[in-house]
Simulated assay, not measured.
Amino acid sequence: MATHGKGILIYFEAIMMETKIYQQKDIPEAAQALRAGKLVAFPTETVYGLGAVINNEASVHQVYAAKGRPSDNPLIVHVASPEMVWQYAKPNDLAVELMTKFWPGPLTIILPLQPGKLLSAVTGGLETAAFRMPNNAATLALIEETGIPIVGPSANTSGKPSPTLAEHVYHDLNGKITGILDDGPTKVGLESTVVDLSIKPAAILRPGYLTAADLTPILGEVETEMHHVAANEVPKAPGMKYKHYAPNAQVLIVQPDQDFSAVVAETLQHYPKKFGVLAFDQQLAKLPQAERLDTYSLGTDVSTGGHQLFAGLRDYDLQPEIKLILAAGVPETGLGIAYMNRLKKAAGGKFFTTGMDLQADL
């Protein structure tokens, strides 16, 4: 478990208490807890985040400890207005245009910092930081009430599927954090798009709900080739270096050009245990009824699939007898790029191939 300095003492005190569920009427109480150096999870339109005020080093270190997150994985700074950003970042005209068009919303912007304005615990020691203004009224009110931006990685155990419900956060972090601001299910379900404006041309470091096509009218040329982060390199954005989104079971991706029904039939024939199927409605409708087959709907298209993906992976984590999940892949265009980015990480890059030895490979 990664932790640092005096933050560990506060952290281990925190794990002795029951995590409180805050409602919107409790926002002043939640803000007071944040100002006091406590951890409070909060909703966004994408996933739930784990909040700590950015000016309290012990609190920021508690975030890493509660998640079991590597300390060189930088944190996204969540703000309630664009004006908050310029207290820390250097002026940037392109960023202003992006904020005007897409904020509040699922877009994170990496910017060069004014010297000495943010703790290295927030930035991972970099001279840049990632900023986002989430499209969630409860969280914007929480940040405003707190009076200072808050860090906000996904509120889950590091490496596990991101939380799209307060219940998911409670499952992972109960007893490790002070509270969770509950605002129901998130609306997008995939984390924000991360665009790096500290380099030219700008680069998308993490695909998300907003695509390159959405950003190019403002940015012009934008680099979309994902950078491979070396072992000794500090990533500029979450999700670039370490294992993410993985359930306890092994996920195998079924390519969109494969016959999904045939894949399930082959699995039923050669895999003797109960297994999960994460697929779209039109695929599920063609599957046989079988006692060893557990299905979870991704809805009708890639948009609903992106919304349901993490919830489906987490659902199978609640069924420890399931060690294998077949998951539907989609073409890697538009929103499908972000969907497949998360699914490949959840699967460890593994795909279903006809004739594979399922038991040996798992």
Rank of each mutant, 00 (worst) to 15 (best):
E83Q: 15
D259I: 02
H168N: 06
A65N: 02
P153V: 00
V234A: 15
Q258P: 01
V302F: 13
K273L: 08
P201I: 04
A231Y: 14
V47E: 03
Y316S: 10
N341Q: 08
T3C: 13
T139Y: 03
F280G: 08
A285K: 15
V222M: 12
Q24I: 12
Q23V: 00
I199L: 04
Q250H: 15
D172V: 09
A328T: 04
P91G: 03
F352Q: 12
K101S: 13
E145A: 14
E57Q: 15
A279D: 01
P256Y: 10
V254L: 03
Q250T: 12
P256G: 13
I253K: 05
Y316P: 10
S297E: 05
L326A: 12
G336K: 11
T178S: 12
K20I: 05
F42M: 10
T333K: 15
E291D: 04
V47L: 05
Q359Y: 00
T295L: 11
A347S: 07
K20N: 02
T267G: 10
T46E: 10
I27V: 04
L9G: 06
A30G: 05
A166S: 13
K323N: 15
L34V: 00
P201W: 07
I10G: 14
K273Y: 12
E145S: 13
E191C: 00
I76R: 08
V188I: 15
G312S: 13
I27Q: 08
T224A: 08
A66N: 09
V264Q: 08
A58H: 08
T216F: 07
A58T: 06
A262W: 05
S71M: 15
L197Y: 14
L98F: 11
L94H: 06
E45A: 09
G152A: 06
K274H: 12
S192A: 05
D26E: 07
